[in-house]
Computed example of a mutant assay.
Amino acid sequence: MMENLEVFVDTVRAGSFSAVARRRGVAVSSVARQIDALEGELKASLFTRSTRALQPTDAGNLLFCRAVKILSDLADARSEVISFEAAVEGVLRVSCLPTFGRRYVVPCLAQMFQTHPGLSVELDLTERLADPTTERLDLAIRFGHLPDSSLFSTKLADQSYVICAAPDYVARHGTLQSLNALAGHRLIDKRRSQSPLGWREVLGDDFQYGHCVFEADDFDAQRQAAVAGAGIVRLPDWVVGHDVGVGALVVLHPDGLPAADVTGIHLVRALPRPSARLKAFVDALADFIGRPASWQRAMRRKTSRKAESASLESPG
Rank of each mutant, 00 (worst) to 15 (best):
A86Q: 09
C96D: 03
L267D: 10
V244G: 01
R269V: 02
M112W: 06
A165W: 08
F143Y: 12
P254F: 06
I163S: 02
I289P: 08
S120F: 13
W295N: 11
R191D: 13
G241C: 12
S45M: 10
G184E: 05
D205Y: 08
S29V: 03
F113A: 09
V262P: 06
V244K: 02
Q224I: 15
L42A: 11
E122T: 05
F17C: 05
E215I: 08
V170L: 14
A130K: 01
L257D: 03
E135M: 14
Q208W: 04
E41M: 14
A284D: 06
E6F: 05
P196D: 11
Q159T: 15
S50C: 02
F17K: 01
L74T: 12
F214H: 10
E41N: 07
T11V: 07
V246S: 06
G256E: 04
A221E: 14
R33T: 03
F64S: 03
D287P: 05
L278K: 06
P98E: 09
I141L: 10
P167A: 01
L271I: 09
L54K: 02
W199T: 09
E308G: 14
S45T: 13
C108S: 14
P274E: 06
G247Q: 05
D189Y: 08
L179G: 08
E201S: 12
P254H: 00
G316N: 08
K306V: 12
P292C: 12
V26W: 03
V202T: 14
I232H: 00
L187R: 05
R300D: 15
S311V: 06
